[in-house]
Amino acid sequence: MPEQVPPTEKLPPPGRSYWGDAWSRLARNRLALISLWVLVGITLFCVVGPWLRGYGFNDQDYARVFADPSGAFPFGTDDLGRDQMVRIMVGGRVSLGIGLTATAVTLIIGVLYGAVAGYAGGRLGALMMRLVDVLYAMPFTIFVIMLLTFFGRNMWLLFVAIGAVEWLTMARMVYGQVRSLKERDFVLAARMLGQPWYRIVWRHLLPNVLGVIVVYATLTVPSVILLESFLSFLGLGVQAPRPSWGSLIKFGADQMTTSPHLLIIPALFFSVTLFCLNFLGDGLRDALDPQSRRD
């Protein structure tokens, strides 16, 4: 019998990679794209702004307390005559910084914990997730409040406390995803080829959960900022005189009747940021969702 060689097939020109494909889909989502640019703008404003502004966030001047917005002080001044604009910038640094740091903590702990528990499966995985359930059941707002009252209001402690609340959800989500993925044929194929477990987790499982992780992370940032604002609002957030958006809003709320701009402007920054993060998160979910991919 002659040797049979199957006819070689021609392929269409190379398409885009998964990420290229996702990016082009995100780029077509106008709302998500505008949100991305607005976020970049706000971040630049907060990070670079204080250097250009020429006032420190704690430079007090009793000659100009409660000034209305004007050319010299576009956002007005507060009860100590501090420039509200630079305080919003610095407050943004704090809020965005906490948002990003606590999300990073969440990502690292939650993703690793969830992925290991999911891949291990069986009793070990179940045990690890029961622990998460137990932690979930604790009233965390009270936990954070207690932590901060006992150990003092330290910004790092705030990061850790918030991260500790948020990683649980991430861990659960990754756990669920990994568990369903690990029964997929391509993971079985990797096991059949004798790949060690850490390689399977790293190369086969995590990249396929990454879409969901990225999306969830963008949604975690606003919830962390919100949590910090909530704590600030209770007077448990960042230590005065250092501002955060939350503490600025709390202060503004007290002056609402006399100087509404002290509430409106920081609240505007805060809510625009949250909206943008949510729109971006939604856009990313649509862009990365494998269901909507043309297969």
Binding site: R184, D185, F186, A189, R203, H204, P207
Partner: peptide
């Protein structure tokens, strides 16, 4: 495997 859509890692 049976399902050629599930047997290759889409990210590799």
């Amino acid at each position: 495997f049976q399902d050629p859509h599930a047997s290759l890692n889409p990210r590799l």
